[in-house]
Amino acid sequence: RKLSFVDRLEKHPLENRWALWFFKNDRNRTWRDNLHLVTEFDTVEDFWAIYSHIQMASKLTSGCDYALFKDGIEPMWEDSRNKHGGRWLVSLAKQQRQSNLDRLWLETLLCLIGEAFEEYSEEVCGAVVNLRTKGDKIAIWTSEAENQPAVTFIGRVYKERLGLSPKVVIGYQAHADTATKSNSFTKNKFVI
């Protein structure tokens, strides 16, 4: 589809209304108090207006997160839409914050708002980028870890859209496994 003259005059509605969240680590406050709803949008044009007015992910300080979730879903395991779900996790090396993080996060956002996963887009809850000194992380969260056809389709499309080399392996982890783990290792339920 090309942008016609009429296209330039009107806003383009998204399939979903999305909420942008910001997390800033402050050890004196609870995790929930550190999580802030920034704004919501439901058109392509409003997405770009917001995107161009906020800090790029790579400019945030370590410990911060951005999250983009469908309206009505909170970016936490406890939400009923996330509870039985999991995430496709892309772990980045430290040096990728400068070279790759912003491109990969934008691509993730475009996958979400453009409904890149076709009929399986229904399963998508949102996405999170974590800025961490030991290595940043980007993940797409889906609502049902046992839904293998949906999870694997989303993983394949996502990996392709990120332009990751076939040699790079991304893993899907159930939130229930992440929440109950006793060390920093969570087993992958699926890999692509």
Binding site: L3, R8, H12, L14, E15, V44, W48, E107, L110
Partner: peptide
Amino acid sequence: GTRIIYDRKFLMECRNSP
């Protein structure tokens, strides 16, 4: 119903549109 799907190219064009 039908899903509103936008590919990457269309979304990027909207970014640059005045």
